[in-house]
Design a protein around this nucleic acid. Structure first.
Lengths: 347, 347
DNA sequence: CCTATCAGATGGAACGTTCCAATAAGTCAA
DNA sequence: TTGACTTATTGGAACGTTCCATCTGATAGG
């Protein structure tokens, strides 16, 4: 049905015997029109199979109610969670956010940002791809589009950030390992082009220092932030003359790799080698053994980011405060029992 | 920098000392303008910090190069993979697709579709939410927007579908279990409001019938399509007087649940109870024991769907052929060795 | 010198909305 | 009856593009 050409408000106006202005008012739910007229118009809208043309409207209105979420890796459940948290908030605000994936590729990210801008987004929540150039968001800034970073930040930028307390999380995890009696510790995975990496590594280092682990007993192995990276890290670590007995992993994926590699060598995770992850993705709980990990509540951070964005749009500002989310260590089985001679504490 | 109001092609025209038409032509890369003029214009574009207004352009052009992907559950890596496959194709076609998540909620889906239509999408790839009403896509159809379904289909619709060969996959998996010597089989998880469920269950039933398993030895347990659902299915199955010895699971998540529940009961997956999954998500390979599963190549299906969509848009049609993707059984450890007395075949 | 041809550039009318200012039709007080 | 005010409705100009039709000079052929 419906003639080939799309119906416009003029078609509705003709059908309902009113002016286009009246139709426009009805569409916006204005209280100025007589109820009976509104009913008549709404009927006509149904009859002609009208679909609202937001592009045309934005041409006049200049603010667009479209919000973009730019995610660096959608296949990582951790970031998918983040996206879902944001969506929840936007949904209850009656707006539909568009998600775009950059697959950790700065060039792709550039394209995505350009496209989103052309679409006239009202705001952008971004988890920047690794290796993002320092000036990548300048365009957005000069255009006055509100942007907030989620999970990750860029080295020098003034864009507000919503992220977990990486430093503290790493500190807690490291303290836990030391508390278990480990004296030679490793940090596995990640690479220094990520700010997050420095934050987590910083927490690790600080804990070691404060709790009496010497510098030569704190080992750092960079590597891919994936299972594969974890496997590689463990292999090179165990090849050392004096290998570590425990590792804090950059994220859970790395930790899973380590667990796997341990099993493959016939070592028992937890008793032979302790490992703790970071992010606490859902699988952590279900792994064998269950992974001890730093929970960051990514969905919660997503919600927070969405709220900040909404507020920024509303107050038409491009600045906002950073928000550092609380973290907590979820102790499961991958660090085994205490390592000291005794039989652990009585609790 | 950049004055408060956004720059338009008129600003560029003024800056470059040409007409707006010329600027427009340059933007479209027309060969009609003299190279030096083009250079001059491009410089002006940079200078004024111009961002293209696609909304305004679409107003005239009426076809929008925006493609939407509507996904029922982004946190499921299986669907995330699908999305990534599609993205890959669209990227090389130079277009940026927008992803929207429906979280398996038909109401949300309705909102998402509406929003996407208002945005003037050129086409839509949809993995419909469970419980989608039969007429949910009529609007799209009458508007002449090309739509293709991915992974899932709706009962009566004429919309083209890109999906794996669920029936055959289930058949293969079931035959494998029977080949291992199992004589009392279960189908775990899923519910009948999904067409996929019927397809997979159908393959299971056919294999049982053809390969000589009596109807009373083929058990079906509906349940959530999650780890939790798998755990529940196993519990009720093992509570039976004469429990099954093997199960085909609706998907990998269910299978993981079953594996977990077996371990919790002190049973060894594979030897005590065989389980095969469906979808072959990345985790399947890394589980303990590694999960035997039906691989469906979701990224490949995503690519296929994207290609079909591109073709539909290009030939401005709303119809296309269905595409049923090949599947294959990836045998790992979760079904253990053969069950018959002998020591298996000599291969 | 005139006319055809051609490359390059341009004005103006759309496209489908919103919103301001204006209008029409009541209602009510003076 | 008049004017002030209210309520409901409306025309028209804008928003930033595209694209058709037109215009301007050059160049070339006769």
């Amino acid at each position: 049905m419906a003639s080939r050409a799309k119906a416009t408000i003029l078609d509705i106006a003709r059908e309902a015997g009113v002016s286009k202005s009246t139709v426009s008012l009805v569409l916006q739910g204005s209280g100025l029109i007589r109820p009976e007229t509104a009913v008549k118009v709404r009927k006509a809208i149904e009859d002609v199979g009208y679909v609202y043309n937001r592009g045309a409207a934005n041409l006049r209105k200049a603010h667009s109610n479209v919000i973009g979420m730019v995610i660096n890796d959608l296949t990582n459940p951790f970031f998918a969670e983040l996206a879902v948290g944001m969506e929840r908030v936007f949904q209850s605000a009656g707006i539909v956010p568009f998600i775009a994936n950059t697959a950790e590729n700065p060039v792709r990210q550039e394209e995505v940002l350009k496209s989103l801008m052309e679409q006239g987004v009202a705001g952008l929540i971004v988890s920047p791809a690794r290796g993002t150039a320092p000036g990548a968001f300048r365009r957005l800034e000069t255009a006055g589009v509100p942007v907030v970073f989620a999970m990750r930040r860029l080295p020098e930028s003034r864009i507000p950030v919503i992220a977990p307390d990486n430093h503290r999380g790493a500190y807690l995890a490291t303290a836990h390992l030391i508390g278990k009696g480990h004296r030679r510790l490793a940090f596995f995975g990640g690479s220094s082009d990520l700010v997050v990496y420095h934050e987590r590594l910083g927490g690790f280092r600080e804990a070691c220092e404060v709790l009496g682990i010497t510098a030569r007993d704190t080992l750092v192995f960079e590597g891919e932030t994936s299972r594969k990276g974890g496997i590689a890290c463990l292999d090179t670590a165990l090849a050392m003359a004096e290998p570590p007995t425990a590792a804090l992993c950059f994220n859970d994926a790395v930790a899973f790799g380590v667990l796997l590699a341990l099993r493959k060598r016939g070592l028992e995770p937890g008793t032979d080698f302790a490992v703790v992850g970071f992010d606490d993705v859902v699988e952590a709980e279900h792994y064998m053994p269950a992974l001890t990990s730093v929970a960051v509540d990514s969905a919660g951070l997503g919600e927070r980011a969405a709220h900040v964005m909404l507020k920024m749009i509303q107050s038409r500002t491009t600045r906002a405060e950073d928000h550092i989310g609380a973290v907590n260590l979820v102790v499961r089985e991958s660090c085994g029992p205490d390592r000291r001679a005794g039989l652990g504490d009585a609790a």
